[in-house]
Write a protein that binds this DNA or RNA. Structure first.
Lengths: 224, 224
DNA sequence: TCAAGGGTTAATCACTCGTTTGAATTGGTC
DNA sequence: GACCAATTCAAACGAGTGATTAACCCTTGA
């Protein structure tokens, strides 16, 4: 029968509509009535269920961040310190990380409008986090940073913390830029703005990152 | 005496205030009365001088983009085709490009609020360009892309257009991400989020980019 | 001296905003 | 059926939106 309490229905319908509308026109550009209409609900319910527009926005953000299962699932836990083969493990860990990051986080199902909207919302929040949303954002991102930095410090033990941070920034930056600046990239290149073949993209990012990081294995052997 | 036509004064004061306010609270989050108050002017003047709020926004964007003289000034014009030393010239061109890009475009005078606001506005427009602003944006960015791609195709003549584009994206992406995501970076690392020493930053970006691109000169010599 | 016109002003327009209110409706329990 | 709390609804509230109006400087040219 799936009776499912009707109030839960409207609640989630409101959140879903909010994600779509906030992504499309921003927080200030979106009206409560608009969202309610999209959810086939009364606008007063926003206040009732979420204590107002801002509460709904926050709830929508939480939903967006927890929507995608963390790409880190399935990756080996923080690497062993200086066990034998630690370096090789870190290398594979970084490769796996980038693959997971790109596939699961960056490239959603373009045919699912809700998925698309979620990405737009996340990107916007990363660029200029709303005060209220900062904790949610941080909690979601922190594990990625930790994992990545662990790999980097194993691969380049000669670098200090600041240099490692710059490496991490450059690696993440490529991929995030690719997602966040799709707007301008599309303007410059037209559609499709990137290779249909996702694997080609992944290989590029992995190769560029490893070379940039200064991992000898990734660099073409000099002819002699 | 400095008589200076009063109408020109208010016009530019309005634009200046608009940049500050639009950057701080976005287009929809900013009211024209707020902007007018910041410019010590009457809100009706927005319509009078700019045909309305949207006109003022567009004018503010134009002002932002033409504010900074193009970092490409002073760089050698498009490189010679296959003249002798073309490769070395391209290498130096890319280094100079990155240096100019970082210093002049990415890192404004942080003590100048107007400069800061201009960057915020540009970053936002790059991520999700307003329909009306797209042409302005394109015109400003296109020369950068052209120059960069010219360097890249000389340094990696073995790559096809798509691969070159990915390289360009990765190179630009690092730097742009660094600027555009200062919000989240500050959250993760606190202040100051990046090295005080600008030169250190430049060297990192140049090194990472050249290695990532696959330029042998940039890679540490294997010990043998 | 006076009309003309661009720049500026306060006052007001019609409209939308997020929120509040109080009544109607629903589903469950006795 | 009677009761209750949770949910939904239409209607209205006050504040604020961008745009418009008509009057008012103040300089300019005849």
């Amino acid at each position: 029968m799936a009776p499912s309490p009707p109030h839960q229905d409207t609640r989630s319908r409101l959140i879903e509509s909010a994600i779509l509308h906030f992504a499309a026109k921003g927080y200030d550009g979106t009206g409560i009535r608009e969202i309610a209409k999209g959810a086939k609900a009364n606008s007063a319910l926003v206040t009732y269920h979420f204590c107002g527009k801002e509460g709904l926005f926050l709830e929508a953000l939480k939903a967006v961040f927890s929507r995608k299962t963390s790409p880190l699932t399935g990756l080996q836990p923080p690497l062993p310190a200086d066990a034998p083969g630690a370096r090789q493990a870190a290398l594979e860990g970084l490769r796996a990380y980038l693959r997971a990051f790109i596939t699961e986080l960056m490239f959603c199902d373009a045919r699912d409008p809700l998925d698309e909207a979620a990405m737009v919302l996340m990107a916007r929040e990363m660029q200029s986090p709303s005060e209220a949303a900062a904790p949610v954002l941080m909690a979601h991102i922190e594990p990625y940073v930790t994992y990545l930095m662990a790999c980097l410090s194993l691969l380049r033990p000669d670098l200090d913390e600041e240099a490692l941070f710059l490496m991490g920034n450059s690696i993440q930056g490529q991929v995030l830029h690719f997602r966040n600046s799709l707007g301008i990239i599309r303007l410059l290149r037209g559609n499709p703005a990137f290779p249909e073949d996702l694997e080609k993209l992944i290989q590029h990012f992995i190769g560029f990152s490893l070379r940039g990081l200064g991992v000898p294995e990734a660099f073409p052997q000099p002819r002699n």
